[in-house]
Computed example of a mutant assay.
Amino acid sequence: MALRFERDRPRLRAVAYRILGSLSEADDALQDAWLRADRADTSDVANPSGWLTTVVARVCLNMLRARAGRREDPLDDAAPVPRPGGGSADPEEEAQLADSVGIALLIVLDTLGPAERLAFVLHDMFDVPFDDIAALLGKTPAATRQLASRARRRVRGVPAPEADTPRRRRAVDAYLAATRGGDFDALVSLLHPDVVLRADAAVVPTPEPVVMSGREPVARGAMASMARARSAAVVLVDGVPGIATAAHGRLGVVLRFTFGGDGLITGIDVAAEPERLAALDLTGAGVS
């Protein structure tokens, strides 16, 4: 079993990362899973790889449920994640993993309940049969299919029925690209002269919410969030293109945009307070 675990480690780590959205937590889950596997009687295990996947998934499910009970503050994108024993997850490796999986997908997965997330990841990403997932969740296969189906609809997303949605999506894409690249002039060109930005106190953080107006002050404020933009992606916020960040798999900040008739951005609402984030409907950016 030890040899099988080492052979399967890359796949098991991929399973854990997609379920948890955090590289350090995925590695912790693998360590816990191995301790459980090493203590178990595996003499009658016919499919060791499948059995190990189930063990890892069960550990991850417990971690998701514990996380749901104590929503944590998002971590700084650039800060290494502390590990037991004094080590830390490699921020560059975490960023590469997030890019390979898709930051937008990780953001939407973080809005799902533990059972939905597990059902979707195991079935849609790793071809685990619904019967096996159902046994893990303590549900019927039919109920497990429904969980995966609901998660799939959120991941794909359905845009609001507005004629301007594609144009707004392009503007939001351009906003994110300019912020990531530090292109001040490109960012200014997307903003209305009288644009107003409002941000929760938790965004900076500051004692009071932040309000600024004018395209250059707003653009300078956006430039200050270049590090955060590395973990950001375009998603649908209440059916309308917006931006969300997910440092280490945790939803952190959501930007909602309003537009003028000329297509320029007239308002940016930046939400970071937990109760505001919980009230938003985030789905995959299923618009072209």
Rank of each mutant, 00 (worst) to 15 (best):
R4Q: 11
E6P: 03
E6R: 12
D8H: 11
R9K: 15
P10E: 08
L20I: 10
G21F: 02
S24F: 10
E25G: 09
A29F: 08
R36L: 15
A37Y: 11
A40T: 15
D41R: 11
D41L: 07
T42N: 15
V45Q: 11
N47P: 08
S49Q: 15
W51K: 11
T53F: 06
T54D: 13
R58F: 10
R58L: 14
V59P: 11
L64W: 08
G69W: 08
D77G: 04
D77T: 14
A79C: 12
D90H: 08
D90C: 10
A95Q: 06
Q96L: 13
Q96K: 13
A98F: 00
G102V: 02
G102F: 00
G102Q: 01
A104Q: 01
L106D: 03
V108L: 04
T111K: 01
L112N: 00
L112M: 06
G113W: 02
A115H: 06
R117L: 03
R117G: 02
L118H: 00
M125Y: 12
D127E: 06
V128D: 00
P129R: 02
P129G: 01
D131R: 08
A134D: 00
A134K: 00
K139L: 08
P141L: 00
Q146T: 13
A148F: 01
R150G: 03
R152K: 14
R152N: 11
V155N: 06
G157H: 07
V158F: 12
D164V: 12
P166V: 10
R168D: 04
R168K: 14
R170V: 09
A171R: 09
A174C: 02
L176D: 01
A177V: 06
A177R: 07
D185C: 00
A186M: 02
V188M: 04
P193G: 05
D194R: 15
D194H: 14
V195H: 04
V195Q: 03
A199V: 10
D200F: 05
A202D: 14
A202L: 13
P207N: 13
V210H: 13
V211C: 12
V211I: 14
M212P: 07
E216P: 03
E216Q: 11
A219V: 05
A219C: 05
M226A: 12
R228H: 07
R230T: 06
S231G: 05
A232T: 02
V237Q: 06
G239E: 04
P241E: 02
T245H: 01
T245M: 02
G249Y: 04
L251P: 01
L255H: 02
F257D: 05
G261Q: 10
L264W: 04
L264F: 07
I268H: 03
I268M: 10
A271K: 08
R276S: 12
L277C: 05
L280H: 08
D281M: 12
L282D: 04
G286D: 07
V287L: 06
